[in-house]
Design a protein around this nucleic acid. Structure first.
Length: 740
RNA sequence: GGACUCGUAGCUCAGUUGGUAGAGCGUUGCGUUUACAUCGCAAAUGUCAGAGGUUCGAGCCCUCUCGAGUCCACCA
């Protein structure tokens, strides 16, 4: 053995050895219990970060542990096409490298190139997974855009439509003017901003608004029903002088109005504000749209037509000021605005016709599954979050006006489009102009195949929310995998992912899983905390505040990176750590692999020195009789640590399993026992030497086994250098017996 | 506004049925002895946020206060 452990040259060699030996595929023993994890598919828009490394470290530890236990163990890898995120990322790249927009390419070409972009990233990510030591079965790898996966995604939509769980309707939605798509509430990011709050003279009232540009869409004035100041106005019509002249508007009472805010009077703009939309629904108000899908004011706004929202607001405020319609302006008003999580653009609430999932029936079953423990959410604290969201869940808009994704299996017949506008729309869509809006086309036909017949049909250009497909992931991957995989491995054992996507993904998988199969998709949702920098910011590649896993692996080895993410922490909690501290942490575990290596060196050197063949330690009465106190003590501690590590793996306490193992290996075994035994090794008592060497080797072998799920590379490499071990690969060696 | 989490050594964090306070890193001193300087030995540092309660006993359970943070939500 060399003096130091060289992870640089070892890790890739060991990984290749594993892959070649086929140990990543589940064993075929029909008697073996099934254990399976579906990998959360990383987004295909870039490389992996340390957050991914966390789930690899955890999932791989579980997978390797169960493999060593002899279970039929499957870890199924995959990659997600990431809908909007990938499209935005690729559009940026397109613009930067070719100065082109997606419209320059056209839909077909854009999708083709985006597909390639994702495939390229997919290879990068696969290699990073390999570098981290992920022992997943690459032969079963899936991509959300694989044809057979896509087909199942569309089938689900058709089935749900038949079951009455899908509807198409006009609703106020979150519209991203840049992505030109609608978004679900979960895809928003709320950011605090400072904006002027305008106090507008409005007939007999003064009212406060941040958005004077939407006032052309006002269809009522609202006050709180109990507000004494305004009782006499409720139900009356008032006359208001506005920028476009004088108009009449009704005063209504609605308890959604806050008496304390501003003047206690609001204008109701159902076309451009979610709250106003609801008030409008309650009072059957007219919905007036004054801002279009491109984020510009439309012809209902007279001279402001064509202006974008921000400049329009300034212009309108200035004009109101000039006409004396503005009472005052509070320049220091702080509030939060919704922005597009993927591109940062301010969201425009707009009324649009979209496809929705009627979610309540699905949610009910999913709530029950967690309540009765069919699905366990670990740590338990996340259950509260889950219930809180699920019990207040709202219908889910699933259609997106983007190109990259699964296109809706929805068709429109030419003959059903009666108005000239609809016919024009039909024609534009047919020619591939996706700036055209589908929502005015009538009589959609939901069908996997294009309808046949004398009529002419075009497909709805919308694609699904990316979570609509990933929500079905455990079902669809296993159904398209090896024959019998679904039967053998569904429901899967553990779903390991971060709490950020508890609603976006975990909750939806439970709903889809139950809906599609009648069974939950996984027995345990193991939720991880996230890594944050010293300022509490989530680590991300775009912020540049995290360690690049590639660099860390190259410098310190994957084993060290994995340990640094697990040891001495509760993986369900966030970890706040600076770049430097993280690196120190990793270096500490690199030192540990070296320590482990050198313990091996010491033992092997001593084994070689003796001419006697050292028998493998057996826990027999004969051997026990000559054990001295030190021997008994280390063996007792070995038993304890074996139980502890096993218990840690069974109960997802990786922090405890790893640090107690570290402690035992370094301080009990190396610092104490190994030193204590040195005089005995140099003594004349051959029988005792044999005994000591047998124990040293025995304890060491057990340590390697216990450590393997966490530090697979260095342990496997050492395993190969120990002469005479029975099992060729540590990855498939037998897990030590434990009592827990 | 609703829900949840956290506050333990200089820093980052463990601490699971309540039983004499822990690790890593950092700091200080010493050290080349059958592996390892990517090392060894030794040392220092805590009213476990604060107050009250339950208990023979509380970092751990209960209540309140203060501080930090996260998620959800329609405050114009």
């Amino acid at each position: 053995m060399d003096k130091t452990y060289a992870h640089q040259t070892t890790e890739s060699r060991i990984y290749a050895l594993w892959e070649k030996s086929g140990v990543f595929a589940p064993n075929a023993d029909p008697q073996a219990p099934a254990y399976s994890i579906i990998m959360p598919p990383p987004n295909a828009n870039g490389e992996l970060h340390l957050g991914h490394a966390t789930f690899v470290a955890i999932s791989d530890a579980l997978i390797r542990y169960h493999r060593m236990r002899g279970d039929a163990t499957l870890w199924l890898p995959g990659v997600d096409h990431a809908g909007i995120l990938a499209q935005v990322t690729f559009e940026k790249k397109l613009k930067k490298e070719q100065s082109k927009s997606r419209h320059d390419l056209g839909r077909t070409e854009f999708v083709k190139q985006c597909y390639q972009f994702c495939l390229d990233n997919k290879i990068l990510m696969e290699n990073q997974m390999r570098a981290l030591g992920a022992s997943c079965d690459w032969n079963r790898e899936k991509f959300t855009m694989d044809p057979e996966i896509s087909k199942l995604v569309l089938q689900t939509f058709v089935k749900m439509h038949q079951d009455g769980l899908i509807y198409r309707g006009y609703r106020i939605v979150n519209w991203c003017p840049r992505c030109r798509s609608t978004l679900s509430d979960l895809e928003l990011e709320w950011t605090e901003r400072q904006d002027p709050l305008y106090y507008i003279n409005y007939g007999p009232f003064v009212l406060a608004t941040v958005r004077p540009e939407t006032k052309f869409g006002d269809t009522a004035i609202a006050v709180h029903p109990d507000d004494a100041r305004y009782q006499k106005w409720i139900g009356k019509e008032i006359e208001v002088v506005g920028l476009l002249g004088t108009f009449k508007i009704k005063v209504i009472a609605d308890s959604a109005v806050d008496k304390e805010f501003g003047t206690g009077v609001i204008k109701v703009t159902p076309g451009h504000d979610p709250l106003d939309w609801e008030i409008g629904q309650r009072h059957k108000l007219e919905v007036k749209t004054v801002i279009d899908f491109d984020g510009r004011l439309n012809d209902l706004t007279g001279p402001y037509k064509g202006l974008k929202v921000a400049p329009a607001r300034k212009q309108i405020a200035a004009d109101m000021q000039a006409k004396g319609l503005l009472k005052k302006v509070d320049e220091n008003y702080r509030h939060t605005v919704a922005t597009c999580e993927r591109c940062g653009t301010v969201i425009e609430p707009l009324v649009s016709r979209q496809w929705f999932v009627k979610i309540k029936p699905l949610a009910q079953a999913a709530i029950k599954a967690v309540e009765d423990g069919t699905v366990k959410i670990i740590p338990e604290k996340y259950q509260a979050m889950y219930f809180n969201w699920m019990k207040n869940i709202r219908d889910w808009p699933i259609s997106r006006q983007i190109w990259w994704g699964h296109q809706l299996p929805v068709w429109y017949a030419r003959s059903e489009q009666k108005t000239p506008k609809q016919q024009q729309e039909f024609e534009l869509l047919k020619q591939g102009d996706t700036r055209a809006r589908t929502d005015i086309l009538e009589s959609p036909i939901v069908s996997l195949e294009k309808p046949t017949g004398a009529d002419e049909y075009i497909q709805d250009p919308d694609t699904f929310d990316t979570w609509f497909s990933s929500g079905q992931w455990p079902v669809n991957t296993l159904k398209t995998s090896n024959i019998n995989d679904f039967q053998r491995f569904y429901p899967t054992s553990v779903m390991n992912t971060a709490y950020e996507i508890l609603f976006l993904w975990v909750a939806r998988m439970i709903m889809f899983g139950l809906y599609l199969t009648g069974e939950v998709p996984f027995e345990t949702a193991l939720i991880n905390g996230v890594l944050r920098d010293e300022n509490g910011q989530k680590m991300s590649k775009s912020k540049g505040n995290g360690i690049n896993p590639n660099e860390a692996i190259a410098k310190y080895g994957a084993d060290a990176v994995r340990m640094a993410l697990l040891a001495g922490r509760d993986s369900g909690n966030d970890l706040m750590i600076s770049k430097q501290q993280m690196e120190e942490r990793i270096r500490g575990y690199r030192n540990f692999s070296n320590k482990l290596w050198n313990i091996g060196r010491f033992i092997l050197i001593n084994l070689e020195k003796t001419n006697v063949k050292i028998p493998f330690y057996e826990d027999s009465t004969k051997n026990r009789q000559i054990l001295v106190e030190d021997d008994k003590r280390i063996l007792t501690e070995l038993t304890l640590i074996t139980n502890r590590v096993t218990d840690g793996l069974e109960n997802y306490r990786f922090g405890e399993a790893t640090s107690s193992l570290y402690e035992f290996t370094w301080h009990a075994f190396a610092d104490w026992y190994l030193e204590a035994v040195k005089p005995r090794l140099s003594s004349e008592n051959v029988q005792d030497q044999i005994q000591v060497l047998a124990i040293l080797r025995h304890v060491y072998i057990q340590i390697l086994k216990l450590l393997h799920p966490f530090m697979p590379f260095v342990t496997e490499e050492i395993w190969r250098q120990i002469p005479g071990v029975f099992e060729p690969l540590l990855a498939t060696a037998t897990w030590p017996k434990a009592i827990i």
